[in-house]
Simulated scan of single mutants.
Amino acid sequence: MTGSIAELRRRVADFLAVHGCRTGEAPSRSRRPGEYVAAARVHQRALADAGLAGITWPQAYGGLGLGPEHRAAFDAEAAGYETFSALFTIGLGMCGPVLLALGTQEQRTRYLPPLLRADEVWCQLFSEPGAGSDLAALATRATPDGDGWRVSGQKVWTTYAHHSDRGLLLARTDPGKPKHRGITMFALDMAAPGVTTRPLRQATGDAEFNEVFLDDVRVGPEDVVGAVDEGWRAATLMLMNERVALADSPIGSPVTLEAVVALARRTGRAGDPVVRKAVADAYVAHQQVELFARRIAGEVSVGRDPGALASIGKLAAGRLATQVAALAMEVAGPDAVAWDPADPDGGLWAYGELYAPSLSIAGGTEQIQRTVLGERVLGLPREPSTDRDVPFRDLRRG
Results as ranks from 00 to 15, higher is better:
Glu7Asn: 07
Val18Cys: 03
Cys21Asp: 01
Glu35Arg: 13
Val37Pro: 01
Val37Ile: 13
Ala39Glu: 08
Val42Tyr: 00
Gly51Val: 05
Pro58Asn: 11
Gln59Val: 14
Gly62Val: 09
Glu69Gln: 14
Ala72Trp: 01
Tyr81Pro: 07
Ser85Thr: 12
Pro97Thr: 10
Val98Asp: 00
Ala118Ile: 03
Val121Glu: 00
Pro129Gly: 08
Ser133Asp: 04
Asp134Lys: 08
Leu135Arg: 11
Ala142Arg: 04
Ala142Asp: 01
Pro144Lys: 11
Arg150Pro: 01
Ser152Ala: 12
Gly153Pro: 00
Arg166Lys: 15
Arg172Val: 11
Lys179Met: 11
Lys179Ser: 08
Gly182Cys: 05
Met185Glu: 04
Met190Ile: 05
Val195Glu: 08
Val195Thr: 12
Leu200Ile: 14
Gln202Met: 03
Thr204Cys: 06
Asp206Glu: 12
Leu214Ala: 09
Leu214Met: 09
Arg218Thr: 14
Gly220Phe: 02
Glu230Gly: 13
Met240Val: 06
Ala247Cys: 12
Asp248Pro: 00
Ile251Ser: 02
Thr256Val: 01
Glu258Tyr: 02
Ala262Leu: 12
Ala264Cys: 04
Lys277Met: 06
Val289Cys: 13
Glu290Thr: 15
Gly298His: 02
Val302Gln: 07
Asp305Arg: 13
Ser311Met: 02
Ala317Arg: 04
Arg319Gln: 10
Leu320Arg: 09
Thr322Asn: 09
Ala332Glu: 07
Pro334Asn: 05
Ala336Trp: 03
Val337Ala: 05
Asp345Trp: 14
Glu353Met: 14
Ser358Glu: 02
Gly363Lys: 09
Leu373Met: 07
Leu380Ser: 09
